[in-house]
Simulated assay, not measured.
Amino acid sequence: MSLPFSGTSLPVLSANQRGILAMLGAMALFTVNDALVKLTAASLPASQIMTIRGGFAIAFMMALILASGAWRSLRALASPIVALRGCAEMIIGVSYVSAIAYMALGEIVSVVQATPLILTALSVPFLGEKVGWRRWAAVLTGFAGVLLILRPGISGFNMAALLALGTAVFMAIRDLMTLRISPLIPALVVGLGSTLGSFSGGLLLTPFMPWGMPSSGDVARLAIAAVALVFGNWCMVIACRGVDLPTVSPFRYSVVLWALLLGFLIWGDVPDTFALLGTGLIVGSGIYTIHRENRLRARAATTAPVVQSPPGTR
């Protein structure tokens, strides 16, 4: 591709390069969402945050759905599996937004990165998958990393820590449900179902968490968070389509670096040695698990094409 009025040309990105950039962008946008939610949690309850952000996100996603023509598939929202996935997203939203107010951004993001390890463990009873000793060792190593971050029995271990771990468990359950969703249902519609679930969770919490009067800054932060969340999920779609997933997937762990950076710049958070070691164990185990699972799939691959499921949303 040549630039007008110049003899220079721009390099054309390969599919994998595009996927890596999209994955890095998605993780950055998700972290921006988390940081904005954490800032707002200092003045508003989780119920109000989820409802206001969800309202903005629903409006924005509906605009994208109408513009893309995906509105023809909106009836899929009534599908039992899509509805169940929305319920899982409701629990994820409640637990994550409730926990993020009381944990350092880098810590909660690192704990949630245990999701692929939990997914590997759950694939045995729910999918009948055989998991060898190498992947079980990676799962146990990753959970050791979680324990190093949360440190049970230490004053820092509290309900927020349990909610963060619960978030990772339900994210894995949500991803198992995603495998059951027809690839014919547009990712935007699946994402809308998740957003509706999170929005509903905020409404259900309202009687237990009365709303306050949001400032204009609170509303602006949640509007920007909604945009970051929607575009983050869109980047995830780009990152996972038409690429070599073993090459692109490990870059999802860049979210930990983004979280540590924003945590330091905004709140001055500096993780201690145990937290850094735990984070390293989780990330390393997750990358190995992704690598191992992809090698096993490649070994067992047949001539039938593999259909990628829509990626999970936040």
Rank of each mutant, 00 (worst) to 15 (best):
65 I>T: 01
157 F>H: 11
217 G>D: 14
53 R>F: 01
159 M>K: 13
279 T>K: 05
58 I>D: 00
225 A>T: 10
268 G>P: 06
228 A>W: 10
253 Y>Q: 04
78 A>W: 07
36 L>S: 08
201 G>S: 12
111 V>K: 00
170 F>E: 14
147 L>G: 04
156 G>P: 03
18 R>F: 07
122 L>G: 00
236 M>Y: 13
47 S>D: 05
248 V>N: 07
29 L>T: 08
75 R>I: 06
234 W>F: 11
245 L>F: 07
247 T>F: 03
90 M>D: 09
11 P>C: 13
218 D>Y: 09
18 R>L: 12
22 A>W: 11
282 I>Q: 03
96 Y>W: 15
314 R>F: 11
152 P>F: 09
224 I>D: 09
177 M>D: 00
286 G>D: 00
247 T>A: 04
265 L>Q: 07
148 L>V: 07
79 S>M: 14
50 M>K: 08
53 R>W: 01
214 P>L: 12
211 W>C: 06
19 G>L: 03
173 I>H: 03
222 L>Y: 08
114 A>H: 01
274 F>V: 04
46 A>N: 07
171 M>V: 15
6 S>I: 09
306 V>C: 02
67 A>M: 09
285 S>Q: 06
294 N>S: 12
98 S>T: 15
99 A>Y: 14
111 V>Y: 02
36 L>H: 05
80 P>A: 12
160 A>V: 08
302 T>C: 02
199 F>P: 05
207 P>S: 11
8 T>W: 12
181 I>E: 03
61 M>C: 06
295 R>N: 05
113 Q>C: 01
12 V>K: 12
169 V>L: 15
51 T>C: 07
124 V>I: 09
